[in-house]
Design a protein around this nucleic acid. Structure first.
Lengths: 105, 105
DNA sequence: AAGCAATTTGACTATATTTGTCAAACGGAT
DNA sequence: ATCCGTTTGACAAATATAGTCAAATTGCTT
């Protein structure tokens, strides 16, 4: 799973690889084909639940797909921000700090 | 500005240091004191515009406060996620990749 | 080129989330 | 007991998100 593809691209490629139609997959997700089409073209974001279901349907590694999906969500938060990279680094420092101090649980 | 304080804590400390009341600051922000109170206690998120105004009002470094604020937003996206740290790292890789390929502009 | 299946688009609706107001309650100082 | 700053929670308005549906478009295949 290439980190520099979008989640949508990954989903579309795997779906086509398996010879499935939007119709087939969207039925299993219980949404309209239109939405799945938009998800694959990154016009809409999937929900976490949909991502997990898609991993099952398309035989993609759940953790990998979820990481891909979450990282895209993170990027979305900072996409127009000059200071985005610095914010990311700060977030890492914070998460490390939080983890350290939660080890007391 | 301590990275391991919340944005709210930073704002409250600096406001109190300057001897300002919620009333004073919220008037400049043009919101109710109730909201500012909630922002300071991390019960609500400020908007980016409010953060920038707050930096001015409280004489805080704009970039530092913005980084603080954005990193908190990022953290919020992954706070309940097992795979949060991995997603953060993936986001960094992506942003590096994007920057590399945009240098053609 | 016509016909047909798959996908895309866009208008629309419903629902959820966010952002704010307001008034009442709380807490500490005098 | 009153005053003043802050907090709380119910409510309303505005905005964002998720979805449906039908029509338009794309791309085969004949």
């Amino acid at each position: 799973m290439d980190i520099n593809k979008t989640t949508g691209e990954i989903l579309r490629e795997k779906r086509e690889e398996k010879g499935l139609l939007l119709r087939h997959v969207s039925a299993k997700l219980d949404i309209d084909t239109a939405i799945l089409s938009k998800i694959e073209r990154s016009e809409r974001k999937a929900s976490k639940e949909q991502i997990l279901k898609l991993a099952e349907i398309l035989d993609l590694n759940k953790d990998d797909l979820l990481i891909q999906y979450l990282s895209e969500k993170i990027l979305y938060e900072i996409k127009d921000e000059e200071l985005g990279s610095k914010a990311l680094k700060a977030a890492e420092r914070k998460i490390r700090y939080i983890k350290k101090n939660n080890s007391k649980d």
